[in-house]
Structures are given as structure tokens and as C-alpha cells.
């Protein structure tokens, strides 16, 4: 069995009947991204192919931040839920982000 981490996901590659099952740990249990994969592949080949497959299936992207349901603005009975401005990934219009500074 081989394990690897990609995109915050913990993968587990296991041999089964001459092919490979690619598991993912999700909430303490194992789900499967794929089963019966790469028949006849060696362990090293299967790992390379599994990593390529994981990159395709689970692309790295932008994670949405908020809404900040704990601090709604209220107008009468109406609750207006804004983004979580305290979150470190929140990007302000008038402030340069650390990861993406303004080009000069």
C-alpha cells in the first residue's frame, strides 16, 4: 500500500486482483476515487498514474470564504450575512493582498 497527500487530501493506493484501488480518507472513513485501475501496472507505475489522476480529478482552486453566519447585520427581522472579513484569505479592494500584490 502506498499513501500520498495532494491538495489536502490523503490518498491510499492499494493492489487488488492485479489492479489498483485509489482510496481517499474522508471524515475518518475511506471513500474511493477509483477502483480496478491500471491493471497490470507495477507499484511505481501505478503511483505515478494515480498522482496524475488525482491532479486531474481534484484540481487546486480558490476556496470560498464565509459567509460569516455568526455576525449578521440586521434590519428589523432581516438578517444580512456578509463574508467573513476576519478570515486571512479575505481580499480587500483597497488593500494589497500578501499573496497577490499590485503590479507596479
Amino acid at each position: 500500500m502506498t499513501t500520498f497527500i495532494y491538495n489536502d487530501l490523503h490518498f491510499k493506493l492499494e493492489a487488488r486482483d492485479g489492479s489498483w484501488d485509489l482510496g481517499i480518507e474522508r471524515s475518518g472513513t475511506t471513500a474511493y476515487a477509483g477502483v480496478g485501475l491500471f491493471p497490470g501496472a507495477s507499484s511505481a507505475e501505478a503511483e505515478t498514474k494515480a498522482k496524475a489522476l488525482a491532479r486531474t480529478i481534484f484540481p487546486v482552486g480558490v476556496k470560498c470564504v464565509g459567509p460569516d453566519v455568526a455576525h449578521p447585520n440586521t434590519i428589523g427581522d432581516l438578517k444580512i450575512v456578509g463574508p467573513d472579513v476576519a478570515h486571512p484569505n479575505f481580499i480587500y479592494w483597497n488593500k494589497d493582498s500578501v499573496s497577490c500584490p499590485r503590479e507596479r
Binding site: 471513500a31 476515487a33 477509483g34 477502483v35 480496478g36 485501475l37
Partner: peptide, 20 residues
């Protein structure tokens, strides 16, 4: 994702080949 996980698991149990 929950439905995908269930169906792929079912196919695994029947000895099939699948990705989700």
C-alpha cells in the same frame, strides 16, 4: 460527492472498475 462515493463503493463490491 456522497452519491459518487456510494456508487463507486457499490461497483467495487461487485468487482467492477470505476472512477468518481
Amino acid at each position: 460527492q456522497k452519491n459518487i462515493d456510494r456508487v463507486v463503493k457499490d461497483i467495487k463490491d461487485m468487482g467492477g472498475e470505476a472512477i468518481g
